[in-house]
Design a protein around this nucleic acid. Sequence first.
DNA 1: CTGAAAGCGCTTACAG
DNA 2: CTGAAAGCGCTTACAG
Lengths: 316, 316
Amino acid sequence: MKTVSRVINNDPTVKPKNLEKVQQAIAKTGYRRNAFARGLRARQSLMIGLLYEQAEGEYPANILAGALAACRERGYHLMVEVVKGDSMLNSARDFLLQMNFDGVILTPPVCDNPDVIGFLNENDIRYVRISPLNSLPLGHEIGIDDEQAGHALVEHLITLGHRKIAHILGDEGHRATIQRLAGYRRAHDEAGLSFPEGYVVGGGFSSEAGFEGARKLLALDDPPTAIFASNDECAAGVLACAQAYGVRVPDELSVVGFDGSIIADLVHPTLTTMVQPTQAMAAEAVRMIVDARESTERKTLPIEMRVSKSTAACRT
Amino acid sequence: MKTVSRVINNDPTVKPKNLEKVQQAIAKTGYRRNAFARGLRARQSLMIGLLYEQAEGEYPANILAGALAACRERGYHLMVEVVKGDSMLNSARDFLLQMNFDGVILTPPVCDNPDVIGFLNENDIRYVRISPLNSLPLGHEIGIDDEQAGHALVEHLITLGHRKIAHILGDEGHRATIQRLAGYRRAHDEAGLSFPEGYVVGGGFSSEAGFEGARKLLALDDPPTAIFASNDECAAGVLACAQAYGVRVPDELSVVGFDGSIIADLVHPTLTTMVQPTQAMAAEAVRMIVDARESTERKTLPIEMRVSKSTAACRT
DNA sequence: CTGAAAGCGCTTACAG
DNA sequence: CTGAAAGCGCTTACAG
């Protein structure tokens, strides 16, 4: 009785009686459809590929967790692969041609590799780019509004009475770096505030960059009363520097981070930060692949500020 | 010419001339073997399953990274799945029966679920348990020697002149918790030192537990000069507590963590810690699955102490 | 509404 | 050393 296939695939044209009989037999024998046979014959593989350049760290882990949860709900499976080296494409090609994924999720910086994108377009493989540097005409994209986020953080500091707010930039060339700075600028403009050139210092997304940036800022003749760090790690470096130089946070200096990472709650004082919905982004990517109606979809996910103990009213 | 299969599979009985011809054709057309067809027909699937209960966090991310790197070297692919709920087995069964993995990697606490282990044994699926609570007669196991690690950390503190060393325990019921305590005890015994009952406090693997534990310890009539925290997060909580109570680290209090996690370098002062070879453990698990000669293999990986700024010579 | 046949792209014995 | 056939376990049209 090869009606079994129909039952498994929820074919509505099966007599209720037979349906029940088959379902019972399945339950009894513990039968599970072989994914390889199905993947070979059917159009859909029920598999999604997740491409990283680097799998270590909190960000990739959250992407993974979000994607896994979303796959689970839909009966999809997730295969992860690291692509790197001088040619990301060579590294990815094997993976992509061997499995016929229903779609792949590209995390930064893989999502910005033109070779990989071109290959996916040519081979008509569906993909979602997470937090890409630039928007492209084809393919799905998911991100947050970094400009708005930067604006909100600085606005929070202004509301607390701060007038001397500095910014430590993120890694060069990142869209997030440029946009967060733009938000910083707009918040100043809207409040009718200006800031000296020396208040925006180069840095990066690391605690070392934060330490070094804070060192420069605190050594200024007219030091800031608040620092908007590029991200939470950077902010942790700012805290370490403040402590090393005897500057009390938040009494003498307010600090804000970005990302809402675990470390924001582990440092002392705990950081005010902008929570990125990393897991939600990955879940949304899965949804786009599975449900995709259009061939190109862009989505900006909402962010949320988490106010904690590293920011306080300005006392000077 | 169906010699192609032989070429791909490195069959030595192929004429060099034909071999070359086929290889060139492959290079030219960009042909890749279909993984589903292969998986369906062949004994090996070239796929390894990785089972988590939770995918968020640094530990799972490191497991993933280590496993991916090892898979990559061997042409294997990794499929990740979250199993949870009241019955882990129900959650895992689908996954395990649908794909015929060459083996699965079980992370804590999945590796300690008797139902899952029993199922794997029954269905003759190869598996490796990472840092299991207890050793079992069947299956592969990988871990570290927590007793030795705890011993080494406490010995380090004793060498620095500390005589009043406290310990904040990890989560209850964990083998690591029990063994690290045993190491703490042995180091005291060997040095001819004793410690009051109040020096070993309940806690857990969280920064909250560290804060709370430190609060109790610092409030003692005869407070310790050094604290061995259950792990780095716990140690971060200890640092936060010390700072809150105005106890300077390491001048007045030395603190050691465990794990060698990122946060050890983000807190201030940076933590002396015991580096767990998490990625190496996962890589070793892949190796065991792929190369496995025996059906049961146990391996204990070496650990390494990383001395940093949270420990100093005792000044009292 | 259900069954029998063909075929997805490989590998595995078996002939030659 | 190489080719032709069978079959892995499904799904997809096509008959009935």
